[in-house]
Amino acid sequence: MEDYTVEEKDSFTVVGIGTELKSHYTDFAGINKEKSDFWQTLTQAGRLDALKAIATNDYMLAVNEAVNNKMMHYAGVITEATLPEATRVIHFPKGEYLIVKGEAETADELHHTLTDIAFGQVLPELGDFAYVGGPNASVEMGVQNGRVYGEMWIPIVKK
């Protein structure tokens, strides 16, 4: 089994810039390409730097959330500040979270890997808990020994 824990987290707020994912929810290759293209566009436009400037820490979050029956994906930071170009303020509730840790060569690879492990391996085997929706986030926390490391945060409830 992968490196994971269940932890209590205080509520927190993420300010994000988002996009609607158009691929079918089972088309993982299509979803991953849309996410990668979105992050590349944000980086080239300097919009990630604007987000980082208002962050309360060095974490960069890739947030997935269903909004009005649409699959949304956001680049975000934890903050109480606002940003004119932000498209959503995302509130994560206080409660228990599945935390999956990992590392990868790139931030993009980290986000895809953590999402695949959390939803494809850990959640299906997590007998006492269930994910019942709400925002979830892949969190890029830093670089160590040339590799990007981070965690996936998924709010869960006891069954």
Rank of each mutant, 00 (worst) to 15 (best):
Y4W: 14
T5G: 09
V6E: 07
V6A: 10
E8Y: 12
K9I: 12
K9R: 13
K9N: 11
S11E: 14
S11W: 09
S11A: 14
I17M: 11
I17S: 03
T19K: 12
K22Y: 11
S23Y: 13
S23N: 12
S23A: 15
S23K: 12
H24W: 11
T26A: 12
T26N: 15
A29Y: 09
I31K: 01
I31Q: 02
N32W: 02
N32Y: 07
K33F: 13
S36L: 14
F38P: 01
F38C: 07
Q40H: 12
Q40V: 15
L42T: 03
Q44S: 13
A45E: 15
D49G: 15
D49V: 12
A50F: 04
K52F: 05
A53V: 10
N57R: 11
N57W: 09
N57S: 10
Y59M: 09
M60F: 12
L61P: 00
L61I: 10
E65T: 00
A66E: 04
A66D: 03
A66F: 03
M72W: 02
H73A: 06
Y74P: 03
A75P: 00
I78Q: 06
T79N: 09
T82H: 10
L83H: 15
A86W: 12
T87P: 00
T87E: 10
R88T: 07
V89G: 01
I90N: 00
I90Q: 00
P93Y: 13
P93I: 09
Y97T: 01
Y97W: 14
I99V: 15
V100Q: 06
V100K: 03
V100S: 06
G102M: 15
G102W: 12
E103W: 13
E105Q: 13
A107K: 05
D108F: 04
L110S: 06
L110D: 05
L110H: 08
H111V: 06
H111L: 06
L114P: 00
L114K: 01
D116A: 09
I117E: 05
A118L: 02
G120N: 05
G120Q: 06
Q121T: 03
V122G: 02
V122K: 03
P124D: 08
E125C: 07
E125T: 06
D128H: 05
F129D: 05
A130Y: 05
Y131F: 10
V132C: 08
G133I: 03
P135E: 00
N136M: 04
M141I: 11
G142N: 06
Q144I: 12
Q144S: 11
G146H: 10
M152I: 02
W153T: 08
W153L: 11
W153G: 01
V157R: 07
